[in-house]
Design a protein around this nucleic acid. Structure first.
Length: 136
RNA sequence: CCCGCGAGUCAGGCAGCCGCGGGCCGCGACAGCGGCUCGAGGAAAGUCCGGACACCACAGAGCAGGGUGCUGGCUAACGGCCAGCGGAGGAAACUCCCGGGAAAGUGCCACAGAAACGACACAGCCACGCGCGUGCGCGGGGCGAAGGUGAAAAGGUGCGGUAAGAGCGCACCAGCGGUCUGGCGACAGGCCGGCUGGGCAAACCCCACCUGGUGCAAGGCCAAGUCGGGACGCUACGGGUUGCUCGCCCAGUCCCAGGUCGGCCGCAUGAGGCGCUCGGCAACGGGCGUCCCAGAUAGAUGGUUGCCCUCGACAGAAUCCGGCUUACGGCUCGCUGUCCCA
RNA sequence: UGGGGGAUCGUCUAACGGUAGGACGCCGGGUUCUGGUCCCGGUUGUGAGGGUUCGAAUCCUUCUCCCCCAG
């Protein structure tokens, strides 16, 4: 394996937009909520949890929760897409082998529309750092 | 030009980089990688109707319940659509209407009003008879809708007629019945007759037609896992027939505790789209050709950069399809023109 | 996604198709030296639009919002 071209592929940023890097089981969501650490902002809430059975070297997985209070289907889909994109390009990336759940609160769609994705990305970065700070 | 009316159509575009989901092909032991290709809407929305599909129920019959409601057609079906009829609105283009039955029965019609359906009483008009205080009372008669009201009052208006009056007579109008003509029909028109109605059925209801229930979290399969305790009972009771009755069938019943969070199928070729053509006023149907056109499962279309323009509305598939309704930006075509201005 | 229920004053609730009431707020006035109690008065788009009817909170229809159930 070492020295092979696949090493260059692994060097590319972890694609949290891929389905492998997402939390999909309700069991996993429950674990993050119950046993993880949380950090809350005005528009977002971030939960972080490092599962015991995580594969070594596995990049951080992302789970999103955007309820109907945020807006209609178009707004919520757009918000989820933007949040996934922002999560991948976090400047200090999220620590590996960690499950992170981001909850969008009511008003976050308006925040995105008025302040832009860069502002939302900054808020996301702050909260992720705060929630994962001691475990890293 | 500008108002208005109707129909149709589009849903920012192009390019670079980084990404996401499905299918096919290739490589690979797996994870995966590479190539090609496809990837939201006219409303995907609301879930208001109708069907397909699936399971459950059903020997069967009846009742109940629910829905629809002018006519003819279209459709798999519909509460939808098309063409008409009648009515309503508008100056017009045109638009809108749950639009059967009130001589089958029941009910309601507040307030006001003499009276709200029985045309009786009340009030009133008119001659006649009797009485007296001479314009009133009494009596038996004639009379109609005149009497404030009210949403609605026993056809309306006019003329004649009379003691007073009245469809009592006449003309026109409205309604009813009969008949003729046209139309498949709703209905329209003509003639004749008699002389005439309460209203409300989106009140109960009657009539005609339709109607089993539940919904893809339907349903099928695989994997995993729990399978423990208590009470009452001995055919009385109970359960099923998802509202009831007849009928039929099943057999112990109830309570507590525990398990069920994974995956595969269903799942996308369909009452399908487009083009031409034929029938039809049209909705729609027939024929031929051609295309394959999302299929996720915490749920896919984004990020970024550049250019252009009018600076981009409403809005995101979740079993599928046909409608309805609601939200909304632009463009094209056709049609109307009362008043005002040129 | 599918299925079901609801909306009346600031809050809780009534109302055969015929004037929208009650209780608790709240506001103003009176009584009291002051406050409370008590008395009087006020506070109203029946969620919105359209229709049936002489007349609609009520009947029909379209929409908006809220709540519940099914993993």
């Amino acid at each position: 394996m070492p020295g092979s071209p696949s090493e260059q592929l692994a060097a590319t940023p972890p694609a949290a937009t891929a389905r492998r890097a997402r939390i999909s089981r309700s069991r996993d969501f429950d674990a993050v909520y119950r046993r993880g650490r949380s950090a809350a902002g005005r528009h977002l809430v971030v939960y972080a949890f490092r599962p015991d059975d995580a594969d070594p070297g596995e990049p951080a997985r992302l789970g999103l929760s955007v309820s109907r209070k945020v807006g209609g289907a178009v707004e919520r889909n757009r918000l989820k897409r933007v949040l996934r994109e922002l999560f991948v390009s976090l400047d200090p990336p999220a620590p590996p082998e960690t499950d992170i759940v981001v909850i969008a609160r009511a008003g976050s769609a308006e925040y995105l529309a008025e302040r832009g994705s860069a502002a939302l990305g900054a808020r996301l970065g702050e909260l992720v750092a705060k929630a994962t700070g001691s475990t890293a």
